[in-house]
Every structure is written in C-alpha cells, then in structure tokens.
Amino acid sequence: MTSARGFKVTDAERKTRVGIAVKTLDELRKKTVEKFKLKYPPSTIDFQMQDGTVIDSEEYFQTLAAQTLLIWIRKGNKAETDAEMLYKIIREVNDEYLTTGEKIQDFFTEKMKNKIFKLAEVLRGISGDKVKLSTRTEDPEWFEGLDTSVKTKEAYMRRRAQDRIRSYYYKTKEEIMKVAVTGEANILLKTLLEEFSSRLKYYSYHGHYFDRTCSKFEHMMSICDAEGNFTCQGRWDKAVCLYNPPHSINPYASREHRIVFQTWNLDHRKERTRSVIPAIWEALLVCSKTRDCLDCLENHKIKSKGSDKLLAMEMIYNDLFTPVNLKIVHIVCHDKGAHKQKAGPYWTDGFYDSDESD
C-alpha cells in the first residue's frame, strides 16, 4: 500500500500555507477542504504547481515528490504562477521602480509580454557572478522558497524539465482516451501508451533537457550550454529567434532568473492538441482495420497482423516528447494561435506475415 507523503498546500494568493500528509489525490482534496474551511465539495477542486502545471489525475499525483508545494484551485480555474506575480521580483531587485504610483499603475495595466520586457531590463542589472555555483550551501539565495530536499541547481532544473514532459504525457493520454476506440484499435492504443510510459521512464522523463551537466552528451543532451544559458529557438515556423540579439536566459544565475524561466515554453511546432493527437487517432483506425490485431512491438513500430500498415510509434514519440518537434521559446516568441504545420501520417507501409510465429 502507498505510504502517506507530506505536501505543502497554499491558496492562489499565497496567503496561507499548510502541511498535509495523504496517500491519494482524493484524500488531498478532502483534507484541503477541511484545512482551508472551504464551502464547496472536494470534487470541485484541483491542484496546480508553481509553474502552472495542473495536477488533475491520480496517476500524475503519484509521481510528485514529497513536500512539493501545491496551489489549490477550483476546477477549470488557473492561479497566477510565480512568474506572473512579477511585481514581487521587481520589488526585490528594484524598489525605486515601485515607489512611483503612476509607474505602478502602468505596470499592472500592461499585457504580460510587455511586463516581461521590463523585467528583462531589471534582470540585466543582476550580477551573474554566482552562475557557476551549484549547491545550496554555495548559493543559498538561489534556493530561496524551494523545498529543503533540493540540494543542487541541476537537480532542481532536471525536475522542472521532467514536470513539463510528464505533463505532456498525462495530458496526451487523457485527450487520446476521450475518443472511444474498441477492438483492435483499443489494443493498439494500450500498447502505444505502455510504450510511451516505458520509454519516458527509461529516459527519466528527459530531465536532461534543462540539466547543464548534460550539454555534451550525444544521446541525452541538454537544451542549454555547459553554463546553463538557454537561447530562444524562435517561433514555431521560424528557424531561429528573429530578435537581435536573440532572447536568452540563464536560470542558474539567480533566483530571479530561475523564476522568470517559468515563462519560457517548450513549444510543439506541430501542435500536440490540434495536430498530433488527431493524427494519432487517425493512425489507430487505419492500422487496426484487420480481423486479428497483434499486440507487439518490433523495430519501434506496432504491427497489426494481416494489415499492410504499421503504426509509427517512433515518429509519434518524437513529436510529443523530443526536440524533433519541441523548441525552447521565449514568451514573446510563443505563438498561441493555430500552427499550420500538420502532424502525421503516423503509419508506414508494411506487411506482417500472419503465419509467422509471435
């Protein structure tokens, strides 16, 4: 039986923080309602991490480390992330900016992207002489507000990358399963999801993406360089960031840089929800049009017995979880509109001999 883990739970305004020990997500919902004296049912609340990731499934909840800080929210709502509460950072690093009433008013009425521009100006004035330091002992200010279990900058950044990729997996799984598929298609779907889970665990949910110590590894290379510098890779339809100089940030440099890095996106060129998932549904139907379906993997393709179509699992995995389709993008270059790049088709021609032994 799963043992109880302690979590830190707060509200959207960060006014109250309580410790709660639970075994399941439903138990956390019930205890949160009790602790915060809420007047609505436990089933109507979810939890959000500091970077905006919503924890709305038991499977995802079980992957969280003990002492993770969670923000309770009403279902369908979103709390401001730490990065969106930018005025707190500005107050810490540039008090004078907030002493003029007119400037304060302007700051709160501007759009987020304009706020990011102003924040970037402030960040340029923060010394980066601690960027090469790694441990909590060496640079305690960088770790302010983080769980005491986090001992190095690299370990924290690995976790942040894992959280992003893990959220893509659970969101993809949830959205794929919204469409009812039966028979052979359902067998293929289950096998596909099992393979995703197995691979992601093998690669530790690609935590190396944000870990600067992995910058020189060929097969598990970080997106940043050896010092931790990230450079914007440009909008989904561009080869590079079009700004001169291109947007860049080093979240290892200071606490403020670490928090602002939350506004950077791992963006899918071929959109996950609008393009990749519909293409997966189509491939499942195409590859399952046979009387007998073989639940097996060979050469990274899922084969249907008697069918001349092979489900291209490798291509799907890359488009969901790897830099084949992911770009690190500054918020200004993150286009939330519909991307025109189409995913799939996620099948290849082939034939599996039904007389061949499994």
Rank of each mutant, 00 (worst) to 15 (best):
residue 68 T to W: 00
residue 338 A to V: 15
residue 70 L to R: 01
residue 129 D to Q: 13
residue 252 Y to T: 00
residue 272 R to K: 15
residue 288 S to F: 01
residue 189 L to K: 11
residue 175 E to H: 13
residue 332 V to F: 13
residue 109 T to W: 09
residue 119 L to Y: 07
residue 104 I to F: 07
residue 348 T to K: 13
residue 85 M to K: 09
residue 178 K to P: 04
residue 46 D to K: 03
residue 289 K to L: 15
residue 200 L to P: 02
residue 325 N to P: 01
residue 184 E to W: 10
residue 149 S to K: 13
residue 246 P to A: 00
residue 23 K to E: 07
residue 172 T to W: 04
residue 280 I to D: 00
residue 233 Q to H: 00
residue 228 G to Y: 03
residue 127 S to F: 10
residue 142 W to I: 09
residue 115 K to A: 01
residue 356 E to N: 13
residue 212 R to G: 02
residue 199 R to V: 07
residue 301 K to A: 14
residue 240 V to C: 04
residue 352 Y to C: 10
residue 163 D to A: 07
residue 165 I to C: 05
residue 304 S to G: 13
residue 135 T to M: 01
residue 257 H to M: 10
residue 76 G to L: 00
residue 335 D to H: 05
residue 299 N to S: 13
residue 265 N to M: 05
residue 102 E to Y: 14
residue 264 W to G: 06
residue 252 Y to R: 01
residue 81 T to P: 00
residue 137 T to E: 09
residue 94 N to H: 11
residue 44 T to D: 06
residue 67 Q to I: 06
residue 150 V to R: 03
residue 328 I to N: 09
residue 148 T to W: 05
residue 311 L to V: 09
residue 247 H to P: 08
residue 178 K to V: 13
residue 101 G to L: 15
residue 65 A to F: 12
residue 216 K to I: 15
residue 25 L to N: 06
residue 214 C to M: 10
residue 181 V to M: 07
residue 53 T to M: 03
residue 221 M to H: 12
residue 335 D to E: 07
residue 298 E to H: 15
residue 39 K to S: 09
residue 321 F to E: 04
residue 105 Q to I: 12
residue 293 C to H: 12
residue 274 R to W: 03
residue 104 I to T: 11
residue 312 A to V: 02
residue 205 Y to S: 05
residue 194 E to T: 15
residue 77 N to R: 09
residue 4 A to I: 07
residue 79 A to M: 03
residue 175 E to W: 10
residue 342 K to R: 05
residue 16 T to K: 10
residue 282 E to Y: 10
residue 202 Y to N: 09
residue 67 Q to D: 13
residue 317 Y to A: 00
residue 293 C to Q: 11
residue 41 P to D: 02
residue 212 R to V: 02
residue 167 S to F: 12
residue 66 A to V: 07
residue 93 V to D: 08
residue 206 H to P: 02
residue 141 E to S: 06
residue 203 Y to C: 12
residue 167 S to C: 08
residue 15 K to T: 02
residue 257 H to S: 03
residue 289 K to T: 11
residue 158 R to A: 08
residue 224 C to K: 12
residue 164 R to A: 12
residue 161 A to W: 02
residue 143 F to P: 03
residue 277 I to S: 00
residue 132 K to C: 06
residue 220 M to S: 15
residue 326 L to F: 04
residue 302 I to Y: 05
residue 135 T to E: 08
residue 262 Q to E: 11
